[in-house]
Write a protein that binds this DNA or RNA. Structure first.
Length: 280
DNA sequence: CGGCAAACCTGCGAGC
DNA sequence: TGCTCGCAGGTTTGCC
């Protein structure tokens, strides 16, 4: 499920509970997820102090006091749940449990197991194979129309697929690509190279606005980003087009019964949602 | 190299 | 109620 805003929300929820804390107990309940867990994972984490919790694209980065960084990805169904010690009995798909010296219990749960968790050295982290190919962070100043334009130029694939490509821009997923294209008035069917230039100039603020609003929703609907259940990163957010096939387009005044409303199509095996009257 | 389908794995809702 | 089918927010692989 998680795209950049959800991972950011998980990050903000974990940070106050983990930063400065020492990991006093680590349970590893299976051999790995999409990738195998590192050898001796529990031993390598136990006793370490967390110095920072951050994010790059959809990756969660947890810095430890020995120069190690935990790189975690939530895949499609991964979640982090915070509870108070004593640790509750592990549930189905609880794969990793971290306990801190002040009594927080963080559980990494992932039903589909598309997530991952590996260790890396902080030094040279940007060159790590998982991170090296990532494009710019969409909320940072380096993500400019010129940069996006350059990344889209020469690409003959639909713009929908190009924006899903993490080397073009990091952190967008299926939901926010549809939402950003709607805001920018660009059809998901457009060939990427035709979106360079003016299209990119419209897309950059659209992407920024969509992500910023989603992060704000994550923060505002949760108390300190942690639900009462302890679950992080999952929040209700109103989408303009995503999952709204047949519904009225929020930007149109026409009758969806006559126009068909929001349309859904399949591109590269993923659903795209769009309003044909406002996006071309 | 570029683009697409399939693969990984489980859960859930819709339809019969 | 219970089964099957299609669908799911990610990423990699392998094939044309």
């Amino acid at each position: 499920m998680p795209e950049l805003p959800e991972v950011e929300t998980v990050c903000r929820g974990l940070a106050p509970r983990l930063t400065g804390r020492r990991l006093v107990r680590v349970s590893v309940r299976r051999a790995g997820l999409r990738l195998p867990f590192p050898p001796r994972l529990a031993e390598r984490l136990t006793g370490r102090q967390v110095t920072a919790v951050g994010r790059r694209a959809k990756y969660l980065l947890i810095d430890l006091d020995d120069g190690t960084v935990v790189i975690a990805h939530l895949g499609m169904s991964g979640r982090m749940v915070i509870a108070d010690a004593p640790a509750p009995p592990p549930g189905k798909h609880d794969h990793l449990v971290l306990e801190t010296d002040d009594g927080a219990v963080v559980t990494f749960n992932d039903a589909r197991r598309f997530g991952l968790l590996v260790l890396a050295a902080r030094a040279g982290l940007a060159a790590h194979p998982l991170l090296a190919g990532l494009g710019p962070e969409p909320l940072e100043p380096a993500f400019t129309p010129a940069v996006l334009s350059q990344a889209l130029a020469g690409r003959r694939t639909p713009v929908k697929a190009a924006l899903l490509d993490q080397s073009v821009v990091a952190g967008l997923g299926n939901i926010y690509v549809s939402e950003a294209l709607f805001r920018a008035g660009i059809s998901p069917l457009r060939r990427a190279d035709t979106v360079a230039g003016a299209g990119a100039a419209a897309l950059v603020p659209a992407i920024r606005a969509v992500l910023t609003a989603a992060i704000a929703a994550g923060g505002s609907t949760l108390r300190d980003y942690v639900q009462s259940s302890g679950e992080l990163g999952y929040f209700q957010h109103d989408f303009a087009v995503y999952g709204r096939t047949g519904a009225a387009c929020p930007g149109c005044t026409c009758n969806p019964a006559e126009t068909g409303g929001i349309q859904r199509l399949t591109q590269a095996n993923r659903s795209s949602y769009w309003c044909p009257r406002r996006q071309d």
